[in-house]
Write a protein that binds this DNA or RNA. Sequence first.
DNA 1: CAGATGACGATCA
DNA 2: CTGATCGCCATCT
Length: 86
Amino acid sequence: MKSNFSQKVYEVVRKIPRGKTLTYKQVARIAGKPKASRAVGNIISKNTNKNVPCHRVIRSDGKLGGYNGLRGKSKMQLLAKEGIKL
DNA sequence: CAGATGACGATCA
DNA sequence: CTGATCGCCATCT
């Protein structure tokens, strides 16, 4: 059972249009907890649902952050296909 | 229930 | 500018 916060995070990430990226801070802020950036990453990391474009969620530093292993892909590869590149 | 963990963010040195 | 430390929140063990 997911808490309201995690549910909100999924919803926000799922709303991210193709070719667009959001930072963990933005997602946390929209979810209602501007300081929960860590919690956001944690929730997503343990729920890697394919219906949620978690690879579009990056750090505020402009770095991709973690993400690893899902289908052996990396965020960079997926984002590059979206039209986003470093 | 309490402690440790983590796909982070911001500030300090 | 780069590296390290503290702070914050939900989830896991």
